[in-house]
Design a binder for these strands. Structure first.
Lengths: 148, 148
DNA sequence: TTATTTGCAAATCATTTGCCCGAAG
DNA sequence: CTTCGGGCAAATGATTTGCAAATAA
Protein backbone atom coordinates (compact mmCIF):
# COMPACT_ATOMS: atom_id res chain seq x y z
CA UNK A 1 0.00 0.00 0.00
CA UNK A 2 1.05 3.53 -0.67
CA UNK A 3 1.91 5.19 2.59
CA UNK A 4 1.31 8.82 3.37
CA UNK A 5 4.57 10.66 3.86
CA UNK A 6 5.53 14.16 4.80
CA UNK A 7 7.81 14.55 1.78
CA UNK A 8 5.11 13.58 -0.73
CA UNK A 9 2.70 15.97 0.98
CA UNK A 10 5.08 18.88 0.70
CA UNK A 11 5.96 18.10 -2.91
CA UNK A 12 2.29 18.09 -3.92
CA UNK A 13 1.61 21.26 -1.94
CA UNK A 14 4.48 23.06 -3.67
CA UNK A 15 3.24 21.95 -7.06
CA UNK A 16 -0.33 23.01 -6.34
CA UNK A 17 0.89 26.32 -5.02
CA UNK A 18 2.49 27.51 -8.22
CA UNK A 19 1.02 28.44 -11.58
CA UNK A 20 4.37 27.71 -13.16
CA UNK A 21 5.43 24.44 -14.72
CA UNK A 22 8.50 23.70 -12.68
CA UNK A 23 11.25 21.21 -13.29
CA UNK A 24 12.01 18.51 -10.76
CA UNK A 25 15.02 20.48 -9.66
CA UNK A 26 13.04 23.63 -8.96
CA UNK A 27 10.55 21.63 -6.93
CA UNK A 28 13.45 20.10 -5.06
CA UNK A 29 14.80 23.54 -4.14
CA UNK A 30 11.40 24.68 -2.89
CA UNK A 31 10.73 21.57 -0.86
CA UNK A 32 14.20 21.82 0.64
CA UNK A 33 13.21 25.04 2.37
CA UNK A 34 10.80 23.01 4.45
CA UNK A 35 12.55 19.65 4.47
CA UNK A 36 16.26 20.42 4.22
CA UNK A 37 17.28 16.77 4.24
CA UNK A 38 15.10 15.56 1.38
CA UNK A 39 16.98 14.13 -1.58
CA UNK A 40 16.49 14.73 -5.28
CA UNK A 41 15.87 11.03 -5.75
CA UNK A 42 12.92 11.21 -3.39
CA UNK A 43 11.49 14.13 -5.32
CA UNK A 44 11.69 12.16 -8.57
CA UNK A 45 10.21 9.06 -6.97
CA UNK A 46 7.28 11.00 -5.58
CA UNK A 47 6.64 12.94 -8.74
CA UNK A 48 6.36 9.64 -10.55
CA UNK A 49 4.05 8.32 -7.89
CA UNK A 50 1.80 11.37 -8.01
CA UNK A 51 1.76 11.08 -11.76
CA UNK A 52 0.61 7.46 -11.55
CA UNK A 53 -2.08 8.46 -9.10
CA UNK A 54 -3.24 11.04 -11.64
CA UNK A 55 -2.81 13.90 -9.21
CA UNK A 56 -0.31 15.72 -11.34
CA UNK A 57 0.64 15.87 -14.99
CA UNK A 58 4.06 15.41 -16.46
CA UNK A 59 4.40 17.70 -19.43
CA UNK A 60 6.70 16.06 -21.86
CA UNK A 61 7.21 19.06 -24.01
CA UNK A 62 10.11 19.47 -26.34
CA UNK A 63 13.51 20.00 -24.79
CA UNK A 64 14.97 17.57 -22.38
CA UNK A 65 13.79 18.65 -18.93
CA UNK A 66 10.53 17.26 -17.65
CA UNK A 67 8.12 19.76 -16.23
CA UNK A 68 5.24 19.07 -13.90
CA UNK A 69 1.79 20.55 -13.64
CA UNK A 70 -0.49 20.46 -10.64
CA UNK A 71 -3.57 20.54 -12.86
CA UNK A 72 -4.53 17.16 -14.25
CA UNK A 73 -6.59 18.49 -17.14
CA UNK A 74 -5.57 18.59 -20.78
CA UNK A 75 -4.45 21.92 -22.12
CA UNK A 76 -1.98 23.41 -24.56
CA UNK A 77 1.25 25.18 -23.81
CA UNK A 78 3.34 28.02 -25.08
CA UNK A 79 7.10 28.09 -24.73
CA UNK A 80 8.98 31.36 -24.97
CA UNK A 81 12.00 30.70 -27.14
CA UNK A 82 14.07 33.33 -25.39
CA UNK A 83 13.39 33.01 -21.66
CA UNK A 84 12.18 29.42 -21.75
CA UNK A 85 9.08 30.02 -19.65
CA UNK A 86 6.07 27.79 -20.19
CA UNK A 87 2.57 29.25 -20.22
CA UNK A 88 -0.81 27.60 -20.29
CA UNK A 89 -2.80 28.54 -23.38
CA UNK A 90 -6.51 29.12 -23.16
CA UNK A 91 -7.26 27.83 -26.67
CA UNK A 92 -9.95 25.12 -26.35
CA UNK A 93 -8.71 21.63 -27.10
CA UNK A 94 -9.76 20.49 -30.56
CA UNK A 95 -11.24 17.02 -30.28
CA UNK A 96 -12.28 16.94 -33.91
CA UNK A 97 -8.73 16.75 -35.11
CA UNK A 98 -8.10 13.44 -33.35
CA UNK A 99 -11.04 11.92 -35.19
CA UNK A 100 -9.93 13.39 -38.48
CA UNK A 101 -6.43 11.96 -38.13
CA UNK A 102 -7.86 8.63 -36.99
CA UNK A 103 -10.01 8.52 -40.12
CA UNK A 104 -7.20 9.40 -42.48
CA UNK A 105 -4.58 7.12 -40.98
CA UNK A 106 -6.55 4.21 -39.64
CA UNK A 107 -4.71 4.57 -36.36
CA UNK A 108 -6.32 4.74 -32.98
CA UNK A 109 -5.72 8.29 -31.82
CA UNK A 110 -5.98 8.76 -28.08
CA UNK A 111 -4.81 12.34 -27.68
CA UNK A 112 -2.51 15.01 -28.96
CA UNK A 113 0.03 17.45 -27.58
CA UNK A 114 0.16 20.93 -28.95
CA UNK A 115 2.95 23.32 -28.11
CA UNK A 116 3.28 26.85 -29.44
CA UNK A 117 6.60 28.61 -29.77
CA UNK A 118 7.47 32.25 -29.90
CA UNK A 119 8.22 35.22 -27.68
CA UNK A 120 6.33 36.14 -24.52
CA UNK A 121 5.58 39.73 -23.51
CA UNK A 122 8.79 40.29 -21.65
CA UNK A 123 10.88 39.00 -24.51
CA UNK A 124 9.25 40.97 -27.33
CA UNK A 125 11.78 42.98 -29.31
CA UNK A 126 11.51 46.75 -28.69
CA UNK A 127 9.19 48.73 -30.93
CA UNK A 128 6.57 46.02 -31.10
CA UNK A 129 5.20 47.04 -27.74
CA UNK A 130 1.96 48.63 -29.00
CA UNK A 131 0.62 45.26 -29.88
CA UNK A 132 1.26 44.15 -26.35
CA UNK A 133 -0.32 47.08 -24.54
CA UNK A 134 -3.91 46.29 -25.42
CA UNK A 135 -3.68 42.55 -25.47
CA UNK A 136 -6.02 40.70 -23.12
CA UNK A 137 -3.51 39.29 -20.67
CA UNK A 138 -6.15 37.48 -18.74
CA UNK A 139 -6.85 34.94 -21.43
CA UNK A 140 -4.16 32.67 -20.13
CA UNK A 141 -2.27 31.80 -17.05
CA UNK A 142 1.25 33.02 -16.64
CA UNK A 143 3.85 30.81 -15.11
CA UNK A 144 7.17 31.69 -13.56
CA UNK A 145 10.01 29.75 -12.11
CA UNK A 146 11.65 26.67 -13.43
CA UNK A 147 14.04 27.36 -16.26
CA UNK A 148 17.55 28.80 -16.12
CA UNK B 1 34.44 27.89 -43.41
CA UNK B 2 32.49 24.69 -43.21
CA UNK B 3 34.44 21.95 -44.89
CA UNK B 4 32.95 19.11 -46.83
CA UNK B 5 33.66 15.79 -45.19
CA UNK B 6 32.93 12.21 -46.04
CA UNK B 7 31.29 11.55 -42.68
CA UNK B 8 28.85 14.43 -43.00
CA UNK B 9 28.01 13.31 -46.52
CA UNK B 10 27.19 9.80 -45.42
CA UNK B 11 25.15 10.99 -42.46
CA UNK B 12 23.01 13.21 -44.66
CA UNK B 13 22.62 10.47 -47.24
CA UNK B 14 21.46 8.00 -44.60
CA UNK B 15 18.95 10.49 -43.28
CA UNK B 16 17.60 11.29 -46.74
CA UNK B 17 17.38 7.63 -47.53
CA UNK B 18 14.93 6.72 -44.80
CA UNK B 19 11.31 7.68 -44.27
CA UNK B 20 11.75 6.96 -40.59
CA UNK B 21 12.64 9.47 -37.93
CA UNK B 22 15.75 7.90 -36.54
CA UNK B 23 17.60 8.63 -33.36
CA UNK B 24 21.24 9.71 -33.43
CA UNK B 25 22.19 6.24 -32.35
CA UNK B 26 20.35 4.53 -35.20
CA UNK B 27 21.99 6.87 -37.67
CA UNK B 28 25.32 6.06 -36.08
CA UNK B 29 24.76 2.32 -36.60
CA UNK B 30 23.84 2.83 -40.25
CA UNK B 31 26.75 5.11 -41.02
CA UNK B 32 29.09 2.68 -39.30
CA UNK B 33 28.37 0.12 -42.01
CA UNK B 34 30.09 2.44 -44.44
CA UNK B 35 32.52 4.21 -42.13
CA UNK B 36 33.33 1.71 -39.40
CA UNK B 37 35.59 4.10 -37.51
CA UNK B 38 33.20 7.01 -37.18
CA UNK B 39 32.38 8.01 -33.63
CA UNK B 40 29.05 8.85 -32.06
CA UNK B 41 30.39 12.28 -31.17
CA UNK B 42 30.99 13.00 -34.83
CA UNK B 43 27.45 11.96 -35.66
CA UNK B 44 26.06 14.35 -33.07
CA UNK B 45 28.34 17.17 -34.20
CA UNK B 46 27.29 16.75 -37.82
CA UNK B 47 23.61 16.41 -37.06
CA UNK B 48 23.82 19.72 -35.25
CA UNK B 49 25.68 21.25 -38.16
CA UNK B 50 23.15 20.01 -40.71
CA UNK B 51 20.39 21.31 -38.50
CA UNK B 52 22.00 24.76 -38.41
CA UNK B 53 22.34 24.68 -42.18
CA UNK B 54 18.62 23.93 -42.38
CA UNK B 55 19.19 20.73 -44.28
CA UNK B 56 17.55 18.53 -41.70
CA UNK B 57 15.03 18.94 -38.92
CA UNK B 58 15.44 17.95 -35.33
CA UNK B 59 12.10 16.75 -34.05
CA UNK B 60 11.98 17.55 -30.42
CA UNK B 61 8.96 15.49 -29.66
CA UNK B 62 8.07 14.36 -26.23
CA UNK B 63 10.28 11.72 -24.66
CA UNK B 64 13.95 12.23 -24.23
CA UNK B 65 15.57 10.95 -27.43
CA UNK B 66 16.03 13.42 -30.23
CA UNK B 67 14.91 12.28 -33.63
CA UNK B 68 15.96 13.67 -36.96
CA UNK B 69 14.08 14.19 -40.18
CA UNK B 70 15.60 14.61 -43.63
CA UNK B 71 12.68 16.75 -44.75
CA UNK B 72 12.99 20.35 -43.71
CA UNK B 73 9.31 21.17 -44.02
CA UNK B 74 6.81 21.55 -41.19
CA UNK B 75 4.51 18.67 -40.54
CA UNK B 76 2.80 16.86 -37.69
CA UNK B 77 3.69 13.54 -36.14
CA UNK B 78 2.04 10.53 -34.65
CA UNK B 79 3.70 8.42 -31.99
CA UNK B 80 2.54 4.87 -31.36
CA UNK B 81 2.35 4.46 -27.61
CA UNK B 82 3.13 0.77 -27.80
CA UNK B 83 5.88 0.31 -30.38
CA UNK B 84 7.22 3.84 -30.21
CA UNK B 85 7.35 4.39 -33.95
CA UNK B 86 6.95 7.90 -35.30
CA UNK B 87 4.85 8.54 -38.38
CA UNK B 88 4.36 11.65 -40.46
CA UNK B 89 0.75 12.80 -40.48
CA UNK B 90 -0.80 14.19 -43.62
CA UNK B 91 -3.07 16.62 -41.79
CA UNK B 92 -2.44 20.10 -43.26
CA UNK B 93 -0.74 22.49 -40.86
CA UNK B 94 -3.21 24.92 -39.34
CA UNK B 95 -1.74 28.40 -39.65
CA UNK B 96 -4.86 30.06 -38.34
CA UNK B 97 -4.33 28.71 -34.88
CA UNK B 98 -1.02 30.54 -34.45
CA UNK B 99 -2.75 33.81 -35.21
CA UNK B 100 -5.62 33.00 -32.89
CA UNK B 101 -3.28 32.26 -30.01
CA UNK B 102 -1.21 35.34 -30.80
CA UNK B 103 -4.36 37.43 -30.62
CA UNK B 104 -5.57 35.95 -27.37
CA UNK B 105 -2.25 36.00 -25.56
CA UNK B 106 -0.46 38.99 -27.00
CA UNK B 107 2.56 36.80 -27.57
CA UNK B 108 4.45 36.52 -30.81
CA UNK B 109 3.73 33.02 -32.03
CA UNK B 110 6.24 31.70 -34.51
CA UNK B 111 5.13 28.10 -34.88
CA UNK B 112 3.62 25.13 -33.14
CA UNK B 113 4.37 21.46 -32.69
CA UNK B 114 1.55 18.99 -32.81
CA UNK B 115 2.00 15.38 -31.87
CA UNK B 116 -0.71 12.75 -31.87
CA UNK B 117 -0.63 9.70 -29.64
CA UNK B 118 -2.29 6.35 -29.93
CA UNK B 119 -1.83 2.95 -31.51
CA UNK B 120 -0.61 2.29 -35.04
CA UNK B 121 -1.98 -0.48 -37.24
CA UNK B 122 0.38 -3.15 -36.04
CA UNK B 123 -0.36 -2.38 -32.42
CA UNK B 124 -4.16 -2.32 -32.62
CA UNK B 125 -5.78 -4.70 -30.14
CA UNK B 126 -7.29 -7.78 -31.84
CA UNK B 127 -10.91 -7.55 -32.95
CA UNK B 128 -10.66 -3.97 -34.09
CA UNK B 129 -9.12 -5.05 -37.36
CA UNK B 130 -12.13 -4.31 -39.59
CA UNK B 131 -11.57 -0.64 -39.11
CA UNK B 132 -8.05 -1.09 -40.35
CA UNK B 133 -8.76 -3.14 -43.45
CA UNK B 134 -10.34 -0.38 -45.46
CA UNK B 135 -8.37 2.52 -44.12
CA UNK B 136 -6.47 4.55 -46.71
CA UNK B 137 -2.93 3.69 -45.74
CA UNK B 138 -1.52 5.96 -48.32
CA UNK B 139 -2.55 9.13 -46.59
CA UNK B 140 0.64 9.22 -44.61
CA UNK B 141 4.20 8.11 -44.63
CA UNK B 142 5.21 5.19 -42.54
CA UNK B 143 8.47 5.22 -40.71
CA UNK B 144 10.46 2.36 -39.30
CA UNK B 145 13.64 2.04 -37.36
CA UNK B 146 14.83 4.10 -34.48
CA UNK B 147 13.24 3.15 -31.22
CA UNK B 148 14.16 0.36 -28.82
C1' DT C 1 50.50 24.90 -44.81
C1' DT C 2 46.98 25.62 -41.33
C1' DA C 3 42.48 25.82 -39.66
C1' DT C 4 38.71 22.61 -39.38
C1' DT C 5 37.07 18.04 -38.29
C1' DT C 6 37.71 13.70 -36.56
C1' DG C 7 38.15 9.84 -32.90
C1' DC C 8 38.34 8.82 -28.53
C1' DA C 9 37.53 9.28 -23.90
C1' DA C 10 36.22 11.84 -20.23
C1' DA C 11 32.68 15.13 -18.73
C1' DT C 12 27.80 16.64 -18.21
C1' DC C 13 23.11 16.53 -16.90
C1' DA C 14 18.69 14.76 -15.93
C1' DT C 15 16.86 10.83 -14.08
C1' DT C 16 16.90 6.15 -11.96
C1' DT C 17 18.43 2.55 -8.82
C1' DG C 18 20.57 -0.27 -5.00
C1' DC C 19 21.06 -0.55 -0.43
C1' DC C 20 20.56 0.11 4.26
C1' DC C 21 18.14 2.56 7.72
C1' DG C 22 14.08 4.98 9.76
C1' DA C 23 9.34 5.29 10.13
C1' DA C 24 4.17 4.40 8.89
C1' DG C 25 0.56 1.22 9.68
C1' DC D 1 6.80 -5.88 14.13
C1' DT D 2 6.98 -5.65 9.06
C1' DT D 3 7.15 -3.40 5.11
C1' DC D 4 7.36 0.69 2.54
C1' DG D 5 9.53 4.97 1.72
C1' DG D 6 13.67 7.97 2.36
C1' DG D 7 18.59 9.37 2.07
C1' DC D 8 22.64 8.89 -0.14
C1' DA D 9 25.69 7.70 -3.56
C1' DA D 10 26.63 5.18 -7.43
C1' DA D 11 24.66 3.84 -12.03
C1' DT D 12 22.54 5.05 -16.45
C1' DG D 13 21.85 6.91 -20.88
C1' DA D 14 21.76 10.63 -24.12
C1' DT D 15 24.46 14.29 -25.55
C1' DT D 16 28.59 17.38 -25.33
C1' DT D 17 33.37 18.59 -24.98
C1' DG D 18 38.65 18.69 -24.67
C1' DC D 19 42.47 17.46 -27.04
C1' DA D 20 45.83 15.53 -30.05
C1' DA D 21 46.07 13.50 -34.61
C1' DA D 22 44.15 13.56 -39.40
C1' DT D 23 42.67 16.01 -43.36
C1' DA D 24 40.28 19.39 -46.52
C1' DA D 25 41.18 23.73 -48.72
Amino acid sequence: MVRKTKQRDVILRVLLGTASHPTADWIYEQVRKELPHISLGTVYRNLNLLKLEGKILELDLADSLSRFDGYAREHYHFRCERCGHIFDVDEPADEEIDKRVARSTGFTVSCHRLEFRGLCWDCQPQGTAEGIANSPRNTMQVGSGGQS
